[in-house]
């Protein structure tokens, strides 16, 4: 019965479905090679074992949503596969876990070296001064990086300032972080992270989705089983809690 819910061959012959897969690949990868490789990888996985993944559909969700979840899970697999292929250079690995983290952040995730330093502080992986960090990352700067040798910083190039302003409007926590100096930002991030992990599971996910992933409040509310207006009220309460924690630790806007 379950296997008869869909006809996998027809799904994969559908132009509309193939275009959806292509669109997801394009959204995930800027590089054309990766787009094409991921597209082929997904189609191969969907066909594998007599369409096992497609036949696993039990009809409890809408087919479109199931397909998007499935495609995105395969994209995650694909990304792990190609990042797995891109091993961290031995010269970087021998410097220790902090250096591997910097390499991952800068080379694979396109953060700047300065951003990587801040994240190391938040994660407690590197506690030496910034000047010492600059000296120690010289071998990482020189290491080969297939993905992006120019080491661009993420999100530093928003062309439209109004777009930037809107983004900050919708995300008061990010706006606050943008106004803080280096040391206070690291402290604030540590507080935000610690406060988030103490929240209930629903509140944690709401915060992660709305402020960490910038999903709409409505979509996030659906996931945690609330109405959009209840979710907005809850977010307000949570922001007050974050504010209290930050103020208690002496973090305020300059």
């Amino acid at each position: 019965m379950v296997g008869n819910l869909i006809e996998p061959e027809k799904i994969l012959a559908s132009k509309e479905i193939l275009e959806k897969i292509e669109a997801v690949c394009k959204r995930h990868f800027s590089n054309e090679n990766d787009q094409n490789e991921s597209y082929v990888f997904i189609l191969d996985c969907l066909k594998a074992d007599n369409f096992k993944r497609l036949r696993a559909y039990k009809g409890k969700s809408k087919l479109t949503t199931y397909l998007y979840s499935l495609i995105n899970s395969l994209i995650v697999d694909f990304r792990r596969k190609i990042y797995g292929r891109r091993r961290i250079p031995a010269g970087v690995a021998k410097l220790g876990p902090w250096a591997e983290a910097v390499y991952r952040l800068v080379c694979w995730q396109k953060f700047s070296f300065d951003d990587a330093y801040d994240f190391l502080q938040v994660e407690g992986l590197f506690e030496e001064p910034y000047e010492r960090y600059l000296e120690k990352i010289v071998p990482i700067r020189e290491a080969p990086c297939r993905e992006n040798p120019s080491y661009e910083a993420l999100n530093e190039d928003v062309a439209n300032p109004m777009e930037n302003a809107n983004r900050f409007d919708a995300n008061p926590l990010e706006a606050l972080l943008g106004k803080l100096d280096h040391q206070r930002r690291i402290k604030a991030l540590t507080i935000i992270k610690a406060t988030t992990t103490k929240l209930s599971e629903e509140d944690q996910l709401l915060i992660r989705l709305v402020y960490g992933s910038e999903q709409s409040v409505k979509a996030a509310a659906t996931v945690i089983g609330l109405s959009a207006s209840s979710a907005r009220r809850r977010l307000k309460r949570l922001l007050i809690r974050f504010r209290e924690q930050l103020l208690a630790e002496g973090i305020r806007e300059a």
Binding site: K20, R27, K62, T65, Q215, S216, A219, A220
Partner: peptide, 18 residues
Amino acid sequence: RCYEILQETMQDVPAETS
């Protein structure tokens, strides 16, 4: 992993299909 799949799917699924 599951968080990433969830948030990416939320981006792909148009609001009108809910």
